[in-house]
Design a protein around this nucleic acid. Structure first.
Length: 136
DNA sequence: GCCAACGTTGGC
DNA sequence: GCCAACGTTGGC
C-alpha cells in the first residue's frame, strides 16, 4: 500500500469542482517523474489532494479509482492519467505553512521537491497530515 | 510581479 | 555527454 500527493491549481481545478464531479481523470501531467508516479499508483490507494498557488495546502482525500491508462487529451502514448474518486474533505485544511512548521515533515517531497506535481508520501507523513486535517 | 528551483532543449 | 539558454512551476 502506497500513499500519494497530487497538486492542483485551484484556478484550474479545485476541490469543490472535484466534489461536484465525484470522480475525474487526472490529466495534464507532462513530467516524466510525475508520470512514473502515476504509473505506480494502484487501485484503492489513497491520495492527498493539494491546492497550489493560492492558500496552498492539503484540502482533502482522494482514492485511486482506476490505474494508469492513455491520457485521452493527447495522442502521445507516453502520457497517462489515473481516475481519482472523492474520499472526503478535511474538516480543517492542512496549510503548507503548517506542514513546514511540523518537524516530522521536514523530509516530505512537497518541500524537498517543490515543483513535482505527483509524488509519493510515506505512511507516517500521510497519517500525520490526515490527523492534522482532523484537528489533531 | 518577482524570483528560486529545476526540467528540457539544443548547440557543440 | 556537457552545459548554457530557456520555459514552467509554485511560493511569497
Amino acid at each position: 500500500m502506497n500513499y500519494w500527493l497530487v497538486k492542483s491549481d485551484p484556478e484550474t481545478y479545485d476541490w469543490s469542482h472535484f466534489v461536484q464531479d465525484q470522480r475525474t481523470f487526472w490529466d495534464g501531467v507532462r513530467n516524466f517523474q510525475a508520470r512514473n508516479n502515476l504509473r505506480a499508483m494502484k487501485e484503492d490507494e489513497l491520495v492527498l489532494f493539494y491546492h497550489s498557488n493560492q492558500d496552498p495546502g492539503v484540502v482533502g482525500l482522494a482514492r485511486i479509482a482506476r490505474e494508469a491508462y492513455q491520457d485521452p487529451t493527447t495522442e502521445d502514448p507516453q502520457w497517462v492519467v489515473v481516475d481519482l474518486a472523492v474520499e472526503g474533505a478535511f474538516p480543517r485544511p492542512v496549510t503548507l505553512k503548517a506542514i513546514k512548521a511540523e518537524p516530522r515533515l521536514v523530509n516530505i517531497g512537497l518541500i524537498k521537491q517543490s515543483r513535482l506535481s505527483v509524488m509519493p508520501v510515506t505512511r507516517e507523513e500521510f497519517d500525520l497530515i490526515v490527523g492534522m486535517g482532523h484537528g489533531e
